[in-house]
Design a protein around this nucleic acid. Sequence first.
DNA 1: GTTTTCACTGGGCAGAGTGTCCAGCCCTCT
DNA 2: AGAGGGCTGGACACTCTGCCCAGTGAAAAC
Lengths: 161, 161
Amino acid sequence: MAEVDRDEGAIDVLDARLILLLDEAPRIGVLEASRRLGVARGTVQARLDRLRARGVIRSMSPQLDPAALGYPVTAFAQLEIVQGQGPAVREHLASVPEVLEVHTTTGTADMLCRLVARSNADLQRVIDRVVGFRGIVRAATSIAMENPVPYRVTPLVRSAV
Amino acid sequence: MAEVDRDEGAIDVLDARLILLLDEAPRIGVLEASRRLGVARGTVQARLDRLRARGVIRSMSPQLDPAALGYPVTAFAQLEIVQGQGPAVREHLASVPEVLEVHTTTGTADMLCRLVARSNADLQRVIDRVVGFRGIVRAATSIAMENPVPYRVTPLVRSAV
DNA sequence: GTTTTCACTGGGCAGAGTGTCCAGCCCTCT
DNA sequence: AGAGGGCTGGACACTCTGCCCAGTGAAAAC
């Protein structure tokens, strides 16, 4: 059995310190991290490997800003789906580049998706493309204005210590 | 004037190839990237610096998986706010570790926030803590079940070429 | 109580990559 | 024609990486 997602494996203090350190100074390497944490280099290397293996650290790929890429408008759309059309709708949504994320949800809506667009006008085009698909009954869209709390995970790490 | 977010600065083909390359192989360095792209190392270095300076690449910090950290439950809450209580509510939400993200939105709800919890039962605790705050009139929560399209940005880069 | 297992230490090694220069070239804008 | 900007290919010293090892301590298994 894969023991990837056992929740038993809570991270310990050193893991947390390492993660927080890398979070605010990603450019430092393993060696510098070991120096700042006061442990041997091999330890940091092993911890990192383990965190990666356990899936805590998913990747170190660059984090891109859609706004800087020319898509400053973000919106959320709640979709209601025709029974049985789930798989088709997923495929359709996945094929639209401006759909950055899709969740299926409980509640009145069946899916929640995050959209981006080049402008408010462009958002219309995106929405048309998203909802212009048999299988989607209704769509409720709201535009994101401010982003008082940008996506973050580190508070969980801090409270895990 | 800061010219950080001019939308003029669309990325070119080499930028896009570099970003996509780093996205699927973050561990390769500048040198290996330059080899794979068939350009000089200095070019890759300069491109990366520019992408970072322009904010296209926000950071290279590790991407953490809340589920692997022990928070496998994700939910979205739509909040209705008392007029004028916006700032206080933001502060309150920011102080809750399980609140991973907050947007202010158009539409019937005033804010949309992403929550995580250790279990469905634990979600109750989180929601109580989130909405137990004067200034929040009503909250509508839906639990995320599947995640057919995990957060992604690269399709935008691909279509930018 | 002993033995095994495991993580961490501190060290060493060769190889590779990094940051940082530079001169030269080519294209574009003025 | 000249200036500016980006790319090349090469150089330099320095640092880091990946990988190995023997020794230690502590906790788990026997």
